[in-house]
């Protein structure tokens, strides 16, 4: 059963903000409180919002389970792949092979109080992003499964 037009419009308006906020938490994980798990969970709340506003059929139609499953797999593979690449760089498993290399996320951290540079941290932001992708997929699937277990709509 769809909620009223007002609720659906509200959900539509809030949706991009929730997603952007979630991704913000994910990519700033190495600078500010939060990180991959927290950001992924925030993104998954967008699914909850859809569930509140729209009918079951609409939710299942707009969020394909396969996409969530794929993002779960992709996140996990990115995580373990990043950790394994450290071995090929000649350092220990999970070693930070991007740190201070000057390339992606490779700027050395400035000393003292500073506003924070997102291009630092080596593999830590990458692991955060991987966890974010994994968590949004897994949480989304969990929510869809729970929705699927609910009694059908009266209509």
């Amino acid at each position: 059963m769809n909620m009223s037009n007002l609720v659906r419009s509200g959900a539509n308006i809030m949706m991009p903000f929730i997603l952007v906020y979630g991704f913000y938490i994910v990519v700033h994980g190495h600078l500010t409180p939060g990180g991959g798990f927290q950001g992924g969970a925030v993104i998954a709340t967008a699914v909850v919002l859809l569930m509140v506003a729209y009918s079951r059929a609409d939710v299942f139609a707009s969020i394909p389970k396969n996409v969530l499953k794929n993002s779960e797999t992709a996140g996990l593979l990115l995580f373990i792949g990043t950790a394994l690449l450290a071995l090929t760089a000649g350092i220990a498993f999970f070693g930070n092979w991007l740190l201070g290399a000057g390339s992606l996320f490779g700027t050395p951290v400035a000393f003292g109080i500073n506003p924070g540079d997102i291009n630092t941290g080596g593999i830590i932001p990458i692991l955060n992003i991987a966890v974010g992708i994994e968590v949004l997929g897994a949480m989304g699937i969990l929510l869809l499964v729970m929705l699927g277990g609910m009694k059908g709509d009266a209509e």
């Binding site: 350092i91 220990a92 498993f93 999970f94 070693g95």
Partner: peptide, 11 residues
């Protein structure tokens, strides 16, 4: 001995 995340695993 294996140290995770270190430059050298024996470190």
């Amino acid at each position: 001995l294996y140290t995770f995340g270190a430059a050298s695993s024996s470190d």
